[in-house]
Nucleic acid binder design. Structure first.
Lengths: 213, 213
DNA sequence: CGTCCGCTATATCGGACTGATATATTGGAA
DNA sequence: TTCCAATATATCAGTCCGATATAGCGGACG
């Protein structure tokens, strides 16, 4: 979900479209990516919905590191600003998230529905700081269940040739690796919960502790 | 590319749409998957293009294992056949690949253009038996280059919080693992090329035993 | 000193694919 | 017998990607 990525980044500071894409590529490019073909329509849609607003001569990126490779761009923007705002000006529409947008972000991040595919999960987890421990555990277990159901839909050994088998085996190893990783994250979250043994969230049954392939 | 999967499976025997999807899920479900929403339009398109043809009461699946979970379906098909072919019949359009379709399959499999993403590569490699060694090496190196360019587009360390860092690190490990795998496959192909003079596929050399990260 | 290249930046379009839904048919369980 | 689950085909709205178009700007280069 591209809205999630956009709102999540805008929550850390005002940005324009090009920079949003650059940050997604630089930060979580190995997990998910967005194209202009979906980015700009999504921004227009979010603006119409009132989740974001345009602040024309948007200065200070609020979040740290204003530079990082876009020095020329920043200078260009400064010059644009100096020139005054003749309406013929194009270039650089800076977006800011609204209160409604923040609520929408929280809703998308919680997102009880849906299949939790790799990209969406990666995106959600990269914003996991916005969730509480029980929501985090819920997310991890949802992804884990998704991987398990994916695994036992595949036939055990099948009569595949050498090449097909190599790709299937590699993929199976990858899934097993992902599940181990999820188990570590789940354990870490549980440990964090117990160490904060105030009272809250003492229960959380969440039955998925055996599952040894 | 869904056409590649369809033609590749039909090359092993006549099938109807439902069974094509079942086999994709069962055989390479961890790598790629197809939905009805793309499968049936694709079949219609391929038929119109002359790459496949419909054989109405399609019998013997040609390829082995006619059963595997679809016993009921096969019996139903048999009964349908006994009933005779009143044109009001719906159910079960069995497809067969044409000569032109085989050529198209070869073209799609070679496919010099395109970015070689994970799913497409997995699909291509699972059909690698249809390629010669040099085409196989070309495919492997294309995928390898794709992963490398993907890696150095990401910023080195970035100031990410704990959760984002965990997902990025995990993804980076996954890419490194994929590259090691590709290196093994490349080494194996090279070894196979050099030992062609003797008994073909002499010992499955597994010639990549170093694999130092 | 001009002009051409590459980067920043926004925008749109066609095409591919998904997920949901609708519709038939049939074998088997209750 | 009735109803459910599985088999089987088909379509649709929505989502996303890749390619392409446009445009301002700074610097390289002769």
């Amino acid at each position: 979900m591209i809205d999630l990525a956009i709102l999540g980044l805008l929550d850390e500071g005002d940005l324009h479209g090009y920079e949003i894409r650059r940050r997604v590529r630089a930060q979580i490019g190995l997990v998910a990516n967005i194209s202009y073909g979906s980015l700009y329509p999504a921004l227009a849609k979010l603006e119409k919905a009132g989740d974001v607003e345009v602040i024309e001569g948007g200065d200070e990126p609020v979040a740290s590191l204003p530079s990082t490779g876009s020095l020329a761009g920043e200078r260009a923007a400064a010059r644009t600003r100096r020139f005054g705002g003749a309406k013929s000006r194009r270039s650089k529409k800076v977006y800011r998230i609204t209160e409604q947008g923040r609520a929408q972000f929280a809703a998308l991040l919680a997102a009880p529905g849906g299949a939790e595919d790799a990209k969406t999960f990666g995106l959600r987890w990269s914003f996991a700081r916005h969730l509480d421990t029980s929501a985090r555990l819920n997310l991890l277990e949802r992804r884990r269940a998704q991987l398990l159901s994916q695994m036992d839909e595949v036939e055990p050994a099948g009569e595949l040739d050498h090449y097909a088998k190599s790709v299937v085996d590699h993929a199976a190893d990858g899934v097993a690796r992902d599940i181990r990783w999820l188990d570590e994250l789940i354990a870490a979250e549980r440990a964090a919960t117990e160490s904060t043994n105030k009272t809250e969230t003492a229960a959380e049954p969440s039955a998925a502790r055996k599952a040894s392939a």
